[in-house]
Structure formats: structure tokens, C-alpha cells
Design a protein around this nucleic acid. Structure first.
Lengths: 218, 218
DNA sequence: ATATTTTTTTAGATAAGTCTAAAAATATTT
DNA sequence: AAATATTTTTAGACTTATCTAAAAAAATAT
């Protein structure tokens, strides 16, 4: 039995390891979970005891195979609930995260399989992030950051690299949501901002912060 | 902020008060929650502190207006989730309770309003129990126990007075589910068992235990 | 290579929720 | 009304998850 607190630690460690592709250190986990280093040390000892993580004092932490399995299933649950919240209950992509954060802790594998079925076995969540299947397999999509494109290239918005409500609300405001077609018209050397054409229609200029947070399929 | 444990106590007290229409005593609450009298005493002190219950040592416990409000909203949440589980995810009426028991603790009034809307503002859950509206109003239905009918009377199954999976599975097996038309053909004095016609078709005999657990609309 | 800074762990406390065993209050029986 | 039984509360302990402050280890700078 894994408690909710333990689940949150597994997810945090998974997220950090994915981001930094090395062992997650105590402070990073504390920052991710907005808690203290002391609390993290306590919990790491417990998770190591349960063989969900590899942990050596002062050496950082990585997930074991079982830990990765658990974390992946949590992500599957989180993203399926997000699809439900957005597609069925009308939440916007900036609103669904916190609720999914609660719902992902509901204990029932069968429920998730049925929810998956009910939603039509979606492959991506409302932010374009891939949903692991029931075995934990993730179909990674071929995608590039908008900021990595050169003038003249085109693509379709398939995801975001930043998930903050503020960022997502800004994208809504400027009309950049999943599925929108983008063509890079001009890149301003000065500050990295980019002029775009959307869906072969209107032109907008976005900052480098924005172009660094949008994934496109070319 | 009311914790999950506190919520469970409020529901238990509400349930007992409804059933016995008097103050719930410590042992009854302990039995309902499958915990010890000592734990109950501890929690009652805390709930009284929060003004969710009226509690005097050795005198039993009743809910305050605020306590009733909270308990009613929990029941609303529980029953709406049951509708979702049965109608949308294909769970049977004997399976949905335990999952709803988890889901009812998700914290978001807005989520429940949207779920209500999504489900078409249902008035009753899969067991025929009424769903309180967002203000806590419950539309009680005019209903009678099958065991209270006399020979020749007819009715439609609209609910159950026993919610155990075993009972519900038995009803499934003998074809007595919500909406079925029942006519009382014969009552056996000997043991209180009843011979019935279902939907103007087949005849069955049910025990007094069964006829005491089924609500009909006449 | 020593001193300083940063990171991490330990020590000790706290709060929520639970338990068992014993004591106290209430209810029931004789 | 006293004795007995039942119910409820108290006392004290345990677990989980958290915290602050101090100590220890590791990393960095001089």
C-alpha cells in the first residue's frame, strides 16, 4: 500500500529525473513538493525501505523499476482524469490540473481502465502530453519547440512545455491552442521574439518565453 | 477545512440519526465506522470544537445545522459519483459504492455542479436513493416496502432499503432491478415469503428478507 | 589544502488519527 | 437501593507526515 504522500514523492522524483536526467537531490524534491529537506530525507528512507527508490545518503535518489511503474501509472491516471475534466465537464486546460491532482489518488486500477475506455482510449491529454497505456508504455510524439524552428517552417501545435495556468491562459488569449497551424514568418534577433501566421490567417508576435513553451508537429 | 476522517464521522452520525431518529451514541458510531469507542470519543470532541455536532459526554451526539449541511453535501457527492460510475462506466449497483466512497472526498463544489449537469441533474442514484440538490434539498419519494403490500397490489421497483453487495447481486440474479413492475400474487403466512409476477410475465417467490428490502412506487 | 559555503541528515517536537487497557459514568437487574 | 452489567471516557502509546534548529557531509573557493 502506497500512501498519497508517498505517491506525490514518486511523481516528483520521476518528474525531476525526467527533466534533469540524473539522480534527483533532496533539495530539488523539497522544492518540487514545496516542503523541507528534512521531510524529504525522512520520506526517502521510507521509500527506500519499500524498494521504490534507490537511495544513498548524500547521493540523491532514483526510482527503481517498481517506482517507475508506480509513477507512470500515476501519470496515466492524472492525464486520463484531465481528459475527462476538459472534454466532458468543460474545464479549460489551465483549470484541470489541480482537480486531477486529487483524482489521481483514487485507488482502483479497474476504474482507470474503464475511464480510459469511456474516453475512447485517448493518446494525449489536454496539454498534448502523452498518456501511458495500461502497461505503462508511452508513445512519445515527434515534436519540436517553436523556438527551434527557422523562418518559413510550419507546424501544428501539439503540446506545451510549460503548464502554469498563467501561461495556458495567455495562450488562450492569443489564440494558440492545440491543433492550431503555425508558420514562422520572422525571428527577431534582438530578443528572440517571433512573428507568426496562425491557421493561414492572422499574424501575431510572441516572446521567446512563449516560443520556448510550445511544441509543434512539423 | 474538514478532513476525510471527519467527513466520514459526519456521514455516519447522519446515517444513524436518520435510521434511529434520536441522538447517535458512541458505540453506534464506532460500529458504523468499524472503529473503537475510544477513537469515536476523541473525534466527537474535535467535531464539537468545530461546531459540527452537539455533543455532551455520555449523552450521545447530533449534527448541528452546519453538520447536517456538510453531511447532506457528502451524500450528494456520493450519489452523483454512483450515477457516473453506473451509467457512464458500466459498473453495477452492487459495485459502485466503495469507489463512490473514495470519490466523495474530492474537494471541489464546482466539480460536483458540473458533474450534476453532465449527468443530466439526476434525481435518484442507481439504488433509487434521492440525490440532494446543490442547496441540500432532498425530494423524498412516495414509496412503500414490498412487504407492506397486500395480495393484488402492484408497483414499480424504485429503490432498496438494504445496500449490501450480496443483496443487490441477489436482486440482479432474480431479475428484480429498478423499474421492474411487480404484482403481489400470494403472501405465505408461514414465513412471510411472497409470490410475485414480474413485468406481467414470470412468477417468482421471494423471502421476507427480500420483500423487506425493496421499495415500490404504487 | 584549508576555509567557507551549500547541501543533506539527524534530533527532537508537533498534529492527526488510531489503538488497548483501565477508570468512570450510566443503565439494568435483583 | 445495592449489585451487576453496559457504555463511555480517559490515559497513555503508536504511526504517519510534517516542521525547526543543529550537526555532519560534500562541494566550492581561496
Amino acid at each position: 500500500m502506497i500512501s498519497q504522500a508517498e505517491e506525490n514523492y514518486l511523481k516528483a522524483i520521476f518528474k525531476i529525473s525526467e527533466r534533469e536526467s540524473k539522480a534527483a537531490n533532496t533539495n530539488a524534491v523539497a522544492a518540487e513538493l514545496k516542503t523541507t529537506a528534512a521531510s524529504v530525507t525522512d520520506m526517502l528512507r521510507k521509500l527506500a525501505e519499500k524498494e521504490l527508490i534507490h537511495y544513498e545518503k548524500y547521493r540523491g535518489v532514483t526510482l527503481t523499476t517498481e517506482g517507475v511503474r508506480e509513477a507512470t501509472f500515476l501519470i496515466r491516471k492524472h492525464r486520463l482524469w484531465e481528459v475527462f475534466l476538459c472534454e466532458r465537464l468543460g474545464y479549460t486546460w489551465d483549470e484541470c490540473h489541480d482537480l486531477a491532482e486529487q483524482l489521481e489518488h483514487i485507488q482502483s486500477d479497474d476504474l482507470i481502465d474503464r475511464l480510459d475506455e469511456f474516453l475512447g482510449k485517448p493518446k494525449f491529454d489536454p496539454h498534448g502530453d502523452p498518456i501511458p497505456d495500461f502497461e505503462g508504455n508511452i508513445t512519445e510524439r515527434q515534436q519540436r519547440l517553436l523556438s527551434a524552428l527557422v523562418v518559413g517552417e510550419k507546424g501544428i501545435v501539439v503540446g506545451v512545455d510549460e503548464h502554469s495556468p498563467a501561461f495556458l491562459q495567455h495562450l488562450n488569449r492569443i489564440g494558440v491552442v492545440l491543433g492550431v497551424k503555425i508558420e514562422v514568418l520572422e525571428i527577431f534577433e534582438f530578443d528572440g521574439s517571433v512573428r507568426l501566421r496562425l491557421n493561414n490567417g492572422g499574424e501575431i508576435v510572441v516572446s521567446d518565453r512563449v516560443s520556448n513553451g510550445i511544441f509543434l508537429k512539423i
